[in-house]
């Protein structure tokens, strides 16, 4: 039962925190509609892209690395799609394949530099961050709307759920809905979660993060594992970019600024250690949900500056890092 005690306690705290915050929202802003199931679904819709990106980030962080290029890469993906439909006149499917290919290539270059040239991941992905942000502006400095029919259809597609609706004051039944991006995000979550727990590659990520020297000596290909982790991160980021563009339906240079930090903070709040080797996808997802709930609460308040969300996140990050340290200490003391 207690095979993963420490992780489970942290995960439990994360989930509990989410529930408490959400309940608080219901109590305070219940009259404004926070009780509606749709509020929760909106958090999912707004953060579908971030969820995909955080899944990739978690994999990279499990190896003990970091990828701060993801925010810029999302912006570049959005811009590629915007410019692609308006100027290059490419069909939607080609553009989607293209941004996935861009993700593969991006991750390949970054991962190669980190794994085989042994360069600090922070520096390399920072270079990637500047490159992607720069390329976004080179493609176009203005805000460009995505006008393509396929994208418009995908973006406006409402998938109504058969439960959890409410009747509005006018007596009309409002069914709750999600968007295609949420489905994509859920698939990504399921697949990465499965991959981490059940596949050899997934377990290798944990091993590499646990002790790189040991992993090598036990016969794992550490470099290949690292390379793949960064490729996975960039590909999931491109998928996240696709989800993101479905929400915003435009490309601009200032999109997804700081998204890498949101992804990192979500992963950390979800129990991923920066030193690698510890973390779960489900934890990271709850990390995103907590961040999303904070923004949602600030929005519902209506008077607060959006920056208050940052301050709350800051405190949560502190709390979780302190908790991780405390648990590590307790574990050490128990051992003695």
């Amino acid at each position: 039962m207690n095979k993963k005690r420490s992780v489970n306690v942290l995960l439990l705290i994360t989930i509990l925190l989410f529930v408490v915050m959400y309940m608080a929202g219901i109590v305070i802003y219940g009259s404004k509609g926070f009780t509606h199931f749709q509020t929760f679904l909106n958090i999912l819709i707004n953060n579908a892209g971030l969820i995909c990106v955080t899944c990739g980030m978690t994999c990279v962080m499990l190896t003990g690395g970091i990828d701060i290029s993801v925010g810029s890469l999302v912006a570049m993906d959005c811009m590629i799609i915007a410019v692609g439909v308006t100027r290059w006149m490419w069909p939607a499917w080609a553009l989607i394949l293209f941004i996935l290919a861009v993700g593969v290539l991006f991750g390949l270059v970054q991962g190669f530099c980190i794994a085989y040239l042994e360069i600090q991941p922070f520096i390399i992905t920072m270079a990637g961050m500047f490159f992607a942000r720069g390329m976004t502006a080179v493609l176009d400095v203005h805000q460009i709307s995505v006008t393509d029919e396929t994208f418009t259809k995908l973006s406006s597609l409402k998938i109504t759920l058969p439960f959890g609706g409410y009747t509005n004051p006018k007596g009309m039944y409002v069914a709750p809905f999600i968007r295609i991006s949420v489905i994509i995000a859920l698939i990504v979550v399921l697949l990465t979660g499965f991959m981490l727990r059940k596949t050899r590659f997934g377990r290798s990520l944990y091993a590499v993060g646990g002790n790189q020297v040991s992993a090598t000596l036990m016969g794992l290909d550490v470099k290949k594992t690292q390379l793949r982790a960064y490729m996975l991160s960039s590909v999931l980021t491109s998928i996240g970019g696709f989800c993101y563009v479905l929400n915003t339906m435009c490309g601009t240079t200032t999109q997804a600024v700081g998204m890498e930090m949101s992804a990192i903070s979500s992963a950390v709040i979800g129990g991923t250690l920066l030193t690698g080797g510890v973390g779960t996808i489900i934890g990271s997802v709850f990390g995103v949900l907590i961040n999303g709930t904070i923004s949602s609460l600030v929005k519902f308040n209506g008077h607060l500056l959006a920056s208050w969300a940052n301050i709350v996140t800051a405190f949560l990050l502190m709390l979780f890092i302190v908790l991780q340290a405390v648990f590590a200490k307790i574990r050490e003391m128990q051992k003695k």
Partner: peptide, 24 residues
């Protein structure tokens, strides 16, 4: 070895028994 993995995983990592779906 990797302290963050279970004892069993440390014993078998890199050569885990696989199911027919090619998972651990």
């Amino acid at each position: 070895l990797c302290p963050n993995l279970s004892v069993a995983e440390n014993l078998f990592i890199g050569r885990e028994p696989m199911t027919k779906f090619h998972t651990v």
